[in-house]
Design a protein around this nucleic acid. Structure first.
Lengths: 156, 156
DNA sequence: TATACATCGTTTCAGTATGTAACTATTCGC
DNA sequence: GCGAATAGTTACATACTGAAACGATGTATA
């Protein structure tokens, strides 16, 4: 079989373009994909420490610092004091952060719509089903894009 | 819709892992993905100059130098003199390069087999068909993985 | 033919992104 | 209390990348 025709190559090639396109869609909001990833997880687990978040997302502590820095500078996230541990910072979404997250979801929905524009709803569902079977077989963490996280810790 | 459930995210996530896996499969052969890309295209267009190849693959000239350097050092590719233009180098596959390419194709086939292990042949065909119909798929250069090439020149 | 300009391959360089290893402040186990 | 472990931060060393400069060669033009 000619390379470029297989499922593997197609998915890999498409994935690169799709994530690049999402990055472009996020750019007008002043958000990078990694910032979006962290913002979303802060919303899901308010009050988490930076390293707890970093562990879940496989982002090393030193990188988390600058990501949270940028989110805080933009007023989307707050570093509050943790009442029980003065070393840790409790991360919280600000109202502005919540609004931003809502905007990103709209972007994501539009992105998805554009990608699947040529597919019927039934086809789309079938596609999702097959892709999901492929992901399950590969032990991926749902909702966490490995390109934005660290290579290591895969052995854990 | 929750992020992580969409076609876009699934493909992007899968694509990253799949290309990473291919890189790992290539590693025992002492070949990196970009070297493989160039090697394959040298085979398809023997005698090309470096920049002609670079233009097709969207790899800037300065990068092409080190890629061809490494391929030549390993004895897979030759820089011959171009009889009609002494500036250009005519790239040719060596017999060893040809053997290497055959080995990489075996790797690619095995990779594809592993990916589609859970899919019936009919499903696999349907999957390929749908992937090809995704809107973003239309802008892709067949057989050229954009992650290995330059960002620019997209406007051309 | 002489001259200006374009092209090929190469080298140099500066910007960016990354993880590791120190470092301080704090907490926990004993 | 005292040593070890942990949270966040900073400093640093490394790798990757493309733009730009460069010499050699080719092409067009007068």
């Amino acid at each position: 079989m000619s390379p470029g025709a297989g499922v593997g190559f197609l998915i890999s090639q498409l994935g690169y373009v799709i994530s690049g396109r999402f990055k472009d869609l996020l750019a007008p909001l002043g958000l990078e994909p990694r910032q979006f990833l962290v913002l979303r997880h802060v919303a899901q687990a308010q009050g988490s420490s930076q390293q707890a978040l970093g562990k879940a997302l496989r982002i090393p502590p030193s990188r988390m610092v600058s990501i949270v820095d940028s989110l805080e500078r933009r007023g989307l996230v707050e570093r509050r004091a943790n009442p029980t541990d003065r070393r840790a910072r409790a991360l919280h979404l600000t109202p502005e952060g919540r609004r931003m997250l809502a905007r990103t979801f709209k972007v994501a929905v539009e992105h998805e719509r554009a990608i699947c524009a040529d597919l019927s709803p039934a086809e789309r569902e079938m596609l999702v089903g097959m892709l999901r079977r492929l992901t399950l077989a590969r032990q991926l963490v749902p909702g966490v894009h490995p390109a934005l996280t660290s290579e290591e810790a895969a052995a854990s």
